[in-house]
Design a protein around this nucleic acid. Structure first.
Length: 446
DNA sequence: GCATGATCATGC
DNA sequence: GCATGATCATGC
Protein backbone atom coordinates (compact mmCIF):
# COMPACT_ATOMS: atom_id res chain seq x y z
CA UNK A 1 0.00 0.00 0.00
CA UNK A 2 2.61 2.44 1.04
CA UNK A 3 4.89 1.40 -1.80
CA UNK A 4 2.23 2.01 -4.42
CA UNK A 5 1.24 5.36 -3.01
CA UNK A 6 4.91 6.33 -3.03
CA UNK A 7 5.18 5.36 -6.64
CA UNK A 8 2.27 7.63 -7.49
CA UNK A 9 3.92 10.47 -5.69
CA UNK A 10 6.94 10.46 -7.93
CA UNK A 11 7.56 14.08 -8.90
CA UNK A 12 8.16 13.13 -12.48
CA UNK A 13 6.81 10.79 -15.13
CA UNK A 14 9.05 7.77 -15.19
CA UNK A 15 7.92 6.86 -18.69
CA UNK A 16 9.00 10.19 -20.16
CA UNK A 17 12.64 11.11 -20.86
CA UNK A 18 11.74 14.80 -20.92
CA UNK A 19 10.01 14.64 -17.60
CA UNK A 20 12.99 12.83 -16.09
CA UNK A 21 15.29 15.47 -17.54
CA UNK A 22 13.14 18.27 -16.15
CA UNK A 23 13.21 16.73 -12.73
CA UNK A 24 16.99 16.40 -12.95
CA UNK A 25 17.25 20.13 -13.63
CA UNK A 26 16.37 20.76 -10.01
CA UNK A 27 19.85 19.58 -9.17
CA UNK A 28 21.62 22.14 -11.33
CA UNK A 29 24.05 24.32 -9.35
CA UNK A 30 23.17 22.35 -6.26
CA UNK A 31 24.46 19.26 -4.55
CA UNK A 32 22.38 16.19 -3.80
CA UNK A 33 22.22 17.02 -0.10
CA UNK A 34 21.05 20.56 -0.94
CA UNK A 35 18.00 19.11 -2.64
CA UNK A 36 17.04 16.04 -0.67
CA UNK A 37 17.55 15.00 2.89
CA UNK A 38 19.69 11.94 3.06
CA UNK A 39 18.68 9.59 5.88
CA UNK A 40 21.41 8.56 8.28
CA UNK A 41 21.07 5.06 6.89
CA UNK A 42 22.25 6.20 3.45
CA UNK A 43 25.57 4.72 2.58
CA UNK A 44 27.42 7.95 2.16
CA UNK A 45 30.81 6.38 2.35
CA UNK A 46 30.55 4.65 -0.94
CA UNK A 47 33.35 6.51 -2.61
CA UNK A 48 32.27 6.73 -6.20
CA UNK A 49 28.63 5.94 -6.20
CA UNK A 50 26.90 9.27 -6.34
CA UNK A 51 24.74 7.71 -9.06
CA UNK A 52 23.22 5.21 -6.66
CA UNK A 53 22.44 7.94 -4.12
CA UNK A 54 20.80 10.09 -6.79
CA UNK A 55 18.72 7.18 -8.01
CA UNK A 56 17.51 6.23 -4.58
CA UNK A 57 17.00 9.56 -2.87
CA UNK A 58 16.39 12.01 -5.69
CA UNK A 59 14.57 9.86 -8.23
CA UNK A 60 13.24 7.61 -5.47
CA UNK A 61 13.50 4.25 -7.03
CA UNK A 62 15.66 1.22 -6.38
CA UNK A 63 18.21 0.20 -8.97
CA UNK A 64 16.93 -2.78 -10.91
CA UNK A 65 18.24 -5.24 -13.46
CA UNK A 66 21.68 -4.71 -14.83
CA UNK A 67 20.47 -5.46 -18.31
CA UNK A 68 17.86 -2.73 -18.49
CA UNK A 69 18.35 1.03 -18.47
CA UNK A 70 17.80 2.61 -15.06
CA UNK A 71 14.45 3.99 -16.19
CA UNK A 72 13.23 1.03 -18.26
CA UNK A 73 9.89 2.53 -19.30
CA UNK A 74 11.59 5.65 -20.65
CA UNK A 75 14.66 3.82 -21.88
CA UNK A 76 16.92 6.20 -20.00
CA UNK A 77 20.16 5.24 -18.32
CA UNK A 78 21.34 7.56 -15.55
CA UNK A 79 25.02 8.50 -15.36
CA UNK A 80 26.79 10.83 -13.00
CA UNK A 81 30.28 11.92 -13.87
CA UNK A 82 32.90 14.27 -12.49
CA UNK A 83 34.19 17.35 -14.27
CA UNK A 84 37.10 19.61 -13.40
CA UNK A 85 37.85 23.16 -14.48
CA UNK A 86 39.72 23.52 -17.73
CA UNK A 87 41.61 26.54 -18.88
CA UNK A 88 39.32 29.37 -19.96
CA UNK A 89 37.10 28.63 -16.99
CA UNK A 90 35.17 25.85 -18.67
CA UNK A 91 34.87 22.25 -17.66
CA UNK A 92 36.36 19.01 -18.88
CA UNK A 93 35.90 15.39 -17.93
CA UNK A 94 37.85 14.16 -14.96
CA UNK A 95 37.95 10.68 -16.42
CA UNK A 96 36.31 8.31 -18.87
CA UNK A 97 32.63 7.50 -18.45
CA UNK A 98 32.05 3.84 -17.67
CA UNK A 99 28.95 2.55 -19.46
CA UNK A 100 28.48 -1.13 -18.68
CA UNK A 101 30.55 -4.19 -17.96
CA UNK A 102 31.69 -6.33 -20.85
CA UNK A 103 30.57 -9.91 -20.42
CA UNK A 104 33.02 -11.80 -22.61
CA UNK A 105 30.78 -14.87 -22.75
CA UNK A 106 27.72 -12.90 -23.83
CA UNK A 107 29.18 -10.38 -26.23
CA UNK A 108 30.17 -13.08 -28.71
CA UNK A 109 26.49 -14.00 -29.07
CA UNK A 110 25.38 -10.42 -29.70
CA UNK A 111 25.28 -8.13 -32.69
CA UNK A 112 25.69 -4.39 -32.35
CA UNK A 113 21.95 -3.88 -32.72
CA UNK A 114 21.08 -6.52 -30.13
CA UNK A 115 23.92 -5.61 -27.82
CA UNK A 116 23.49 -5.06 -24.14
CA UNK A 117 25.45 -1.84 -24.51
CA UNK A 118 23.10 -0.29 -27.05
CA UNK A 119 20.03 -1.54 -25.24
CA UNK A 120 21.16 -0.02 -21.98
CA UNK A 121 22.91 3.15 -23.10
CA UNK A 122 21.10 4.27 -26.23
CA UNK A 123 19.74 7.22 -24.28
CA UNK A 124 21.57 8.51 -21.24
CA UNK A 125 20.83 11.21 -18.73
CA UNK A 126 24.23 12.53 -17.74
CA UNK A 127 24.70 14.63 -14.61
CA UNK A 128 27.96 16.52 -14.31
CA UNK A 129 29.26 17.31 -10.86
CA UNK A 130 32.33 19.28 -9.94
CA UNK A 131 34.94 16.84 -8.73
CA UNK A 132 36.57 18.00 -5.53
CA UNK A 133 38.70 15.42 -3.83
CA UNK A 134 37.93 16.31 -0.25
CA UNK A 135 34.23 16.99 -0.67
CA UNK A 136 31.88 14.01 -0.06
CA UNK A 137 30.07 12.97 -3.22
CA UNK A 138 26.63 14.04 -1.98
CA UNK A 139 27.93 17.58 -1.41
CA UNK A 140 29.47 17.99 -4.83
CA UNK A 141 27.79 20.59 -6.98
CA UNK A 142 26.18 19.75 -10.31
CA UNK A 143 27.81 22.54 -12.27
CA UNK A 144 26.26 21.94 -15.68
CA UNK A 145 22.73 21.41 -16.85
CA UNK A 146 21.85 17.73 -17.06
CA UNK A 147 22.22 16.31 -20.55
CA UNK A 148 19.92 13.86 -22.25
CA UNK A 149 22.39 12.24 -24.56
CA UNK A 150 22.04 9.88 -27.47
CA UNK A 151 24.90 9.19 -29.82
CA UNK A 152 24.94 11.52 -32.81
CA UNK A 153 24.52 9.60 -36.06
CA UNK A 154 27.85 10.97 -37.08
CA UNK A 155 29.54 9.23 -34.19
CA UNK A 156 27.51 6.03 -34.22
CA UNK A 157 29.45 4.66 -37.17
CA UNK A 158 32.66 4.84 -35.22
CA UNK A 159 31.08 3.63 -31.98
CA UNK A 160 29.72 0.58 -33.76
CA UNK A 161 33.13 -0.09 -35.30
CA UNK A 162 34.72 0.16 -31.90
CA UNK A 163 32.19 -2.25 -30.43
CA UNK A 164 32.71 -4.70 -33.26
CA UNK A 165 36.46 -4.51 -32.91
CA UNK A 166 36.22 -5.41 -29.25
CA UNK A 167 33.80 -8.22 -30.00
CA UNK A 168 36.08 -9.58 -32.72
CA UNK A 169 38.99 -9.67 -30.33
CA UNK A 170 36.95 -11.69 -27.83
CA UNK A 171 35.80 -14.01 -30.62
CA UNK A 172 39.45 -14.57 -31.49
CA UNK A 173 40.18 -15.66 -27.94
CA UNK A 174 42.09 -12.47 -27.21
CA UNK A 175 40.05 -10.82 -24.49
CA UNK A 176 43.21 -10.71 -22.39
CA UNK A 177 44.89 -8.63 -25.10
CA UNK A 178 42.29 -5.87 -25.18
CA UNK A 179 43.65 -2.36 -24.97
CA UNK A 180 42.28 1.16 -24.86
CA UNK A 181 44.29 1.87 -27.97
CA UNK A 182 42.26 -0.64 -29.96
CA UNK A 183 39.45 1.81 -30.48
CA UNK A 184 38.61 5.47 -30.92
CA UNK A 185 35.54 6.60 -28.98
CA UNK A 186 34.35 3.51 -27.15
CA UNK A 187 37.04 2.00 -24.97
CA UNK A 188 37.40 -1.34 -23.24
CA UNK A 189 38.66 0.03 -19.95
CA UNK A 190 39.93 -1.92 -16.98
CA UNK A 191 37.33 -2.26 -14.30
CA UNK A 192 37.66 -3.68 -10.84
CA UNK A 193 40.56 -4.21 -8.49
CA UNK A 194 43.94 -4.27 -10.16
CA UNK A 195 47.26 -5.21 -8.69
CA UNK A 196 48.69 -8.62 -7.88
CA UNK A 197 45.48 -9.95 -6.32
CA UNK A 198 43.33 -9.15 -9.30
CA UNK A 199 40.87 -11.85 -10.23
CA UNK A 200 40.88 -12.64 -13.91
CA UNK A 201 37.65 -13.61 -15.63
CA UNK A 202 36.96 -16.32 -18.17
CA UNK A 203 36.56 -15.81 -21.89
CA UNK A 204 34.77 -18.17 -24.29
CA UNK A 205 37.48 -18.93 -26.84
CA UNK A 206 40.61 -19.17 -24.75
CA UNK A 207 41.73 -20.73 -21.51
CA UNK A 208 43.63 -17.57 -20.64
CA UNK A 209 42.06 -15.44 -17.92
CA UNK A 210 41.39 -11.84 -18.95
CA UNK A 211 41.26 -8.66 -16.95
CA UNK A 212 37.77 -7.54 -16.16
CA UNK A 213 36.71 -4.75 -18.51
CA UNK A 214 33.85 -2.35 -19.14
CA UNK A 215 32.74 -0.30 -22.10
CA UNK A 216 33.51 3.33 -21.57
CA UNK A 217 33.39 6.60 -23.42
CA UNK A 218 36.95 7.78 -23.65
CA UNK A 219 37.78 10.89 -21.72
CA UNK A 220 38.54 12.84 -24.86
CA UNK A 221 35.18 11.89 -26.35
CA UNK A 222 33.43 12.89 -23.17
CA UNK A 223 35.28 16.21 -23.30
CA UNK A 224 33.70 16.85 -26.69
CA UNK A 225 30.26 16.04 -25.34
CA UNK A 226 30.79 18.46 -22.47
CA UNK A 227 32.15 21.13 -24.79
CA UNK A 228 29.17 20.91 -27.13
CA UNK A 229 26.75 20.79 -24.25
CA UNK A 230 28.19 23.78 -22.44
CA UNK A 231 28.38 25.87 -25.59
CA UNK A 232 24.85 25.00 -26.58
CA UNK A 233 25.96 23.55 -29.90
CA UNK A 234 23.44 21.19 -31.40
CA UNK A 235 24.14 17.68 -32.38
CA UNK A 236 24.84 17.41 -36.06
CA UNK A 237 23.46 14.81 -38.34
CA UNK A 238 25.83 14.07 -41.17
CA UNK A 239 24.88 11.89 -44.10
CA UNK A 240 28.40 11.81 -45.43
CA UNK A 241 30.00 10.67 -42.24
CA UNK A 242 32.64 7.99 -42.05
CA UNK A 243 34.63 6.18 -39.46
CA UNK A 244 37.83 7.87 -38.38
CA UNK A 245 40.23 5.66 -40.30
CA UNK A 246 38.44 6.23 -43.61
CA UNK A 247 38.02 9.92 -42.95
CA UNK A 248 41.69 10.30 -42.17
CA UNK A 249 42.72 8.37 -45.22
CA UNK A 250 40.56 10.49 -47.45
CA UNK A 251 41.86 13.64 -45.85
CA UNK A 252 45.50 12.80 -46.48
CA UNK A 253 45.05 11.27 -49.91
CA UNK A 254 45.43 14.47 -51.96
CA UNK A 255 48.72 15.20 -50.25
CA UNK A 256 50.42 11.82 -50.50
CA UNK A 257 53.46 12.05 -52.74
CA UNK A 258 53.85 15.80 -52.36
CA UNK A 259 57.24 17.09 -51.37
CA UNK A 260 57.64 18.88 -48.09
CA UNK A 261 58.11 22.08 -50.01
CA UNK A 262 54.95 21.58 -52.06
CA UNK A 263 53.03 20.84 -48.89
CA UNK A 264 54.18 24.07 -47.29
CA UNK A 265 52.91 25.98 -50.32
CA UNK A 266 49.62 24.08 -50.57
CA UNK A 267 48.96 24.57 -46.88
CA UNK A 268 50.14 28.18 -46.91
CA UNK A 269 52.70 27.60 -44.21
CA UNK A 270 55.40 30.20 -43.71
CA UNK A 271 58.43 29.14 -45.72
CA UNK A 272 60.79 30.64 -43.19
CA UNK A 273 60.74 27.74 -40.76
CA UNK A 274 60.84 24.94 -43.31
CA UNK A 275 63.74 23.41 -41.46
CA UNK A 276 62.37 23.77 -37.97
CA UNK A 277 61.91 20.68 -35.85
CA UNK A 278 58.20 21.17 -35.82
CA UNK A 279 57.71 21.60 -39.51
CA UNK A 280 56.58 18.10 -40.44
CA UNK A 281 54.25 17.97 -37.52
CA UNK A 282 52.73 21.30 -38.51
CA UNK A 283 52.09 19.89 -41.97
CA UNK A 284 50.28 16.90 -40.50
CA UNK A 285 48.23 19.08 -38.18
CA UNK A 286 47.25 21.45 -40.97
CA UNK A 287 46.11 18.60 -43.18
CA UNK A 288 43.99 17.27 -40.33
CA UNK A 289 42.51 20.59 -39.34
CA UNK A 290 42.12 22.44 -42.60
CA UNK A 291 39.03 22.37 -44.74
CA UNK A 292 35.81 20.67 -43.79
CA UNK A 293 35.27 19.24 -40.37
CA UNK A 294 35.10 15.57 -41.28
CA UNK A 295 38.21 14.69 -39.36
CA UNK A 296 37.50 17.01 -36.50
CA UNK A 297 36.30 13.95 -34.69
CA UNK A 298 39.94 13.21 -34.20
CA UNK A 299 39.64 15.53 -31.29
CA UNK A 300 37.15 13.17 -29.73
CA UNK A 301 39.67 10.36 -29.58
CA UNK A 302 42.95 10.45 -27.68
CA UNK A 303 45.06 10.00 -30.73
CA UNK A 304 48.81 10.19 -30.50
CA UNK A 305 50.02 11.98 -33.60
CA UNK A 306 53.62 11.11 -34.52
CA UNK A 307 55.55 12.20 -37.55
CA UNK A 308 58.21 9.81 -38.78
CA UNK A 309 60.96 10.75 -41.20
CA UNK A 310 62.63 7.87 -42.96
CA UNK A 311 66.17 7.73 -44.26
CA UNK A 312 67.25 6.48 -47.71
CA UNK A 313 67.14 2.91 -46.45
CA UNK A 314 63.54 3.24 -45.38
CA UNK A 315 64.22 3.25 -41.65
CA UNK A 316 63.22 6.05 -39.29
CA UNK A 317 65.97 8.55 -38.71
CA UNK A 318 65.30 8.65 -35.00
CA UNK A 319 63.78 6.73 -32.12
CA UNK A 320 60.49 7.97 -30.79
CA UNK A 321 60.44 9.90 -27.57
CA UNK A 322 57.81 10.20 -24.88
CA UNK A 323 57.49 12.68 -22.03
CA UNK A 324 60.14 12.71 -19.37
CA UNK A 325 59.44 10.83 -16.16
CA UNK A 326 60.23 11.41 -12.53
CA UNK A 327 62.83 9.11 -10.99
CA UNK A 328 61.05 9.35 -7.66
CA UNK A 329 57.46 9.03 -8.84
CA UNK A 330 58.06 5.79 -10.69
CA UNK A 331 58.89 3.98 -7.44
CA UNK A 332 55.36 4.48 -6.16
CA UNK A 333 53.67 3.45 -9.35
CA UNK A 334 52.57 0.24 -10.96
CA UNK A 335 52.92 -0.26 -14.68
CA UNK A 336 49.28 0.35 -15.50
CA UNK A 337 49.26 3.60 -13.54
CA UNK A 338 52.30 4.92 -15.31
CA UNK A 339 52.34 7.71 -17.84
CA UNK A 340 54.33 5.62 -20.27
CA UNK A 341 51.67 2.91 -20.18
CA UNK A 342 48.94 5.45 -20.77
CA UNK A 343 50.80 6.79 -23.78
CA UNK A 344 51.67 3.57 -25.51
CA UNK A 345 48.19 2.21 -24.94
CA UNK A 346 46.81 4.97 -27.13
CA UNK A 347 45.92 4.85 -30.77
CA UNK A 348 48.78 6.27 -32.82
CA UNK A 349 48.47 8.13 -36.06
CA UNK A 350 51.74 7.86 -37.95
CA UNK A 351 52.44 10.39 -40.67
CA UNK A 352 55.44 9.14 -42.61
CA UNK A 353 57.83 11.18 -44.75
CA UNK A 354 60.42 9.56 -46.96
CA UNK A 355 63.02 10.69 -49.51
CA UNK A 356 62.44 9.76 -53.15
CA UNK A 357 65.16 8.52 -55.56
CA UNK A 358 66.48 12.04 -55.91
CA UNK A 359 66.56 12.63 -52.18
CA UNK A 360 63.51 14.91 -52.13
CA UNK A 361 61.50 14.33 -48.99
CA UNK A 362 57.83 13.54 -49.63
CA UNK A 363 54.73 12.64 -47.64
CA UNK A 364 54.83 8.90 -48.03
CA UNK A 365 52.05 7.27 -46.05
CA UNK A 366 49.69 7.62 -43.16
CA UNK A 367 48.24 5.02 -40.87
CA UNK A 368 46.79 4.18 -37.51
CA UNK A 369 48.49 1.74 -35.22
CA UNK A 370 48.39 0.56 -31.68
CA UNK A 371 50.90 -1.55 -29.88
CA UNK A 372 50.31 -5.30 -29.95
CA UNK A 373 49.90 -7.13 -26.68
CA UNK A 374 53.23 -8.94 -26.74
CA UNK A 375 55.07 -5.67 -27.27
CA UNK A 376 53.18 -4.00 -24.46
CA UNK A 377 54.43 -6.79 -22.22
CA UNK A 378 57.98 -6.06 -23.38
CA UNK A 379 57.51 -2.35 -22.71
CA UNK A 380 56.21 -3.28 -19.27
CA UNK A 381 59.38 -5.27 -18.67
CA UNK A 382 61.56 -2.32 -19.62
CA UNK A 383 59.53 -0.07 -17.35
CA UNK A 384 59.79 -2.48 -14.42
CA UNK A 385 63.49 -2.88 -15.01
CA UNK A 386 63.88 0.90 -14.97
CA UNK A 387 62.01 1.08 -11.70
CA UNK A 388 64.12 -1.70 -10.19
CA UNK A 389 67.43 -0.12 -11.20
CA UNK A 390 66.40 3.26 -9.84
CA UNK A 391 65.33 1.66 -6.57
CA UNK A 392 68.59 -0.29 -6.27
CA UNK A 393 70.78 2.53 -7.52
CA UNK A 394 71.96 0.53 -10.53
CA UNK A 395 73.04 2.35 -13.68
CA UNK A 396 72.79 2.53 -16.60
CA UNK A 397 69.05 2.45 -17.13
CA UNK A 398 67.80 0.04 -19.85
CA UNK A 399 69.58 0.82 -23.09
CA UNK A 400 68.29 0.47 -26.63
CA UNK A 401 70.36 -2.65 -27.10
CA UNK A 402 68.66 -4.40 -24.19
CA UNK A 403 65.18 -4.61 -25.68
CA UNK A 404 63.53 -4.94 -29.06
CA UNK A 405 60.88 -2.42 -28.18
CA UNK A 406 61.76 0.35 -25.75
CA UNK A 407 64.59 2.00 -23.89
CA UNK A 408 65.44 4.88 -21.60
CA UNK A 409 67.47 7.84 -22.73
CA UNK A 410 68.27 11.39 -21.68
CA UNK A 411 65.80 14.11 -22.44
CA UNK A 412 66.85 17.38 -20.92
CA UNK A 413 67.90 20.90 -21.70
CA UNK A 414 71.49 19.71 -21.45
CA UNK A 415 73.59 17.23 -19.52
CA UNK A 416 73.50 19.46 -16.45
CA UNK A 417 69.68 19.39 -16.37
CA UNK A 418 69.37 16.80 -13.64
CA UNK A 419 66.84 15.41 -11.18
CA UNK A 420 67.28 13.39 -7.98
CA UNK A 421 67.09 9.59 -8.00
CA UNK A 422 65.85 7.48 -5.07
CA UNK A 423 69.43 6.66 -4.11
CA UNK A 424 70.19 10.36 -3.82
CA UNK A 425 72.35 10.63 -6.93
CA UNK A 426 71.50 13.39 -9.40
CA UNK A 427 70.92 12.10 -12.92
CA UNK A 428 70.30 13.86 -16.22
CA UNK A 429 66.55 13.86 -16.86
CA UNK A 430 65.38 10.86 -18.88
CA UNK A 431 62.43 9.63 -20.91
CA UNK A 432 61.12 6.38 -22.34
CA UNK A 433 61.64 5.89 -26.07
CA UNK A 434 60.45 3.36 -28.61
CA UNK A 435 63.40 1.87 -30.45
CA UNK A 436 64.20 3.09 -33.90
CA UNK A 437 64.34 -0.42 -35.34
CA UNK A 438 61.07 -1.30 -33.70
CA UNK A 439 59.37 1.69 -35.32
CA UNK A 440 60.99 0.66 -38.60
CA UNK A 441 59.13 -2.66 -38.52
CA UNK A 442 55.89 -1.00 -37.56
CA UNK A 443 56.12 1.51 -40.40
CA UNK A 444 57.00 -1.19 -42.92
CA UNK A 445 53.77 -3.01 -42.07
CA UNK A 446 51.59 0.07 -41.91
C1' DG B 1 75.43 2.75 -39.63
C1' DC B 2 74.09 2.47 -35.26
C1' DA B 3 73.61 3.23 -30.25
C1' DT B 4 73.97 6.47 -27.05
C1' DG B 5 74.31 10.86 -24.99
C1' DA B 6 73.13 15.55 -25.62
C1' DT B 7 70.47 19.32 -27.05
C1' DC B 8 67.19 22.27 -29.88
C1' DA B 9 62.77 24.78 -31.04
C1' DT B 10 58.35 25.54 -30.10
C1' DG B 11 53.94 26.10 -27.66
C1' DC B 12 51.62 26.73 -23.62
C1' DG C 1 60.07 28.70 -17.73
C1' DC C 2 59.34 24.37 -18.71
C1' DA C 3 57.49 20.24 -20.97
C1' DT C 4 57.40 18.18 -25.26
C1' DG C 5 58.33 16.40 -29.80
C1' DA C 6 62.07 16.20 -32.45
C1' DT C 7 66.84 16.30 -33.98
C1' DC C 8 71.98 16.65 -33.58
C1' DA C 9 76.78 14.85 -32.49
C1' DT C 10 79.99 11.59 -31.29
C1' DG C 11 82.43 7.32 -30.97
C1' DC C 12 82.64 2.70 -31.91
Amino acid sequence: MEASSMAEELPYDKTSPDSILNHARKLTYRSLSDVVELPPSADKNNRGDLGALVERYFFRYEPNSKHEPDFPEAGVELKTTGVIPSREGRYKAKERLVLTMINFNHIVEETWLTSNLLHKCRLMLILFYLYQKDVPVYRRIFVLEPLLFSFPNMDLIQIQRDWEFIQRKVKSGKAHELSEGDTFFLGACRKGAGGPNEKLVSQPFSEIGAKSRAFSLKQSYLDQIIGNHASGASILGNAGSMDIESATKRRFEPFIGNSVEELAIKLRLPVSNTFGKRHHRTIAEQILLAGESSVLELGKASIELKTIRLNQRGAPRESMSFPGFSFLEILNQEWEDSKFFERIERKFLFVVFAPDQGGVERLSKVGYWNMPYADRLEAEHVWNETKRRLRDGVLPLPKESESEVAHVRPKAANAADKAPTPSGVMLTKQAFWLNRQYIAKVVANL
